[in-house]
C-alpha cells in the first residue's frame, strides 16, 4: 500500500505494513463503507392537522380562521399565529391560487420528484393568508412567474389518502396574473 497523498502543508499518513493481512497486492482493499443512520418516528400531527388531512382525503382544502384578524391559515395549526387563540372556524378553500414565490430545482431528491429542471412554488390559495408548497407542472420551468394563476391537480379518486400528496402538482390556469405586490407578506 502506498502513502496517501495529501496536499502540501497538511499531514500525511505513513504507509502501513499489511503483510499480516496475507493478501496479495492485487486484492482490492476496503476503502469505503456505507453506514446509514436512521431515526424512526411515529408522527402524530395533532388535532388541527388531522382535520386538514382528513379533509384532503375528501378533496377538500380546509383552512382555519383567526378570530381576531379573520385571516385563514392553511395548513391549520389549531391556533392563530397572531393572537395565540384557538382557530375555531373551519374554512373550505378553493383549489386555485397564485404563485407567491418559486424556485427552479436542478438536483432533485425523493421518489416522486419530476424530471429536472422543474419548479417548486409557494401557492397562495384564494382566500388564504399563507401559501402552501408544491411543484408546478404542465408548463416549461422557465415560464413560471410570481403572480401566475394555478390550480391543484389531484391524484385519481381511488388513490386519495389523508396526505398532502393527494395534490400531485399545480398547473397554470387561463387567468390574468395577480399583481405581485398583492402577494407580499403572504408566503
Amino acid at each position: 500500500m502506498t502513502d496517501i497523498q495529501m496536499p502540501d502543508q497538511l499531514w500525511t499518513q505513513p504507509a502501513i505494513n499489511d503483510a499480516a493481512l496475507g493478501v496479495s497486492a492485487d486484492v482490492e482493499q476496503i476503502q469505503r463503507i456505507r453506514i446509514p443512520a436512521a431515526v424512526r418516528y411515529d408522527y402524530v400531527p395533532g388535532l388541527a392537522t388531522t382535520r386538514f388531512l382528513r379533509g384532503l382525503a375528501n378533496k377538500e382544502i380546509l383552512g382555519e380562521r383567526c378570530q381576531t384578524t379573520g385571516e385563514v391559515y392553511v395548513p391549520p395549526r389549531g391556533v392563530s399565529p397572531i393572537d395565540g387563540l384557538p382557530t375555531v372556524e373551519q374554512v373550505k378553500l378553493p383549489h386555485t391560487g397564485s404563485v407567491s414565490t418559486f424556485c427552479v430545482v436542478h438536483i432533485a431528491f425523493g421518489t416522486n420528484a419530476p424530471p429536472t429542471p422543474f419548479c417548486t412554488a409557494l401557492v397562495l390559495l384564494d382566500g388564504a393568508a399563507v401559501s402552501v408548497y408544491g411543484p408546478i407542472q404542465e408548463i416549461d420551468y422557465d415560464k413560471v412567474r410570481i403572480g401566475m394563476r394555478v390550480e391543484a391537480v389531484w391524484v385519481e379518486d381511488d388513490q386519495l389518502d389523508t396526505s398532502f400528496e393527494n395534490i400531485k402538482w399545480w398547473r397554470p390556469i387561463d387567468e390574468p396574473d395577480v399583481d405581485p405586490e398583492l402577494l407580499k407578506g403572504h408566503m
Binding site: 476496503i30 463503507i33 431515526v39 411515529d42
Partner: peptide
C-alpha cells in the same frame, strides 16, 4: 388522530483510511 411513520435517514458513505480498511479487508 392520525399517525404515520416518519423516517429520517442519512446515507453516510465514509472512507476507511488505510488502517480500518485493512482491518475490514
Amino acid at each position: 388522530l392520525l399517525s404515520a411513520p416518519l423516517v429520517i435517514e442519512y446515507p453516510f458513505n465514509r472512507t476507511t483510511g488505510p488502517v480500518i480498511g485493512a482491518f475490514l479487508t
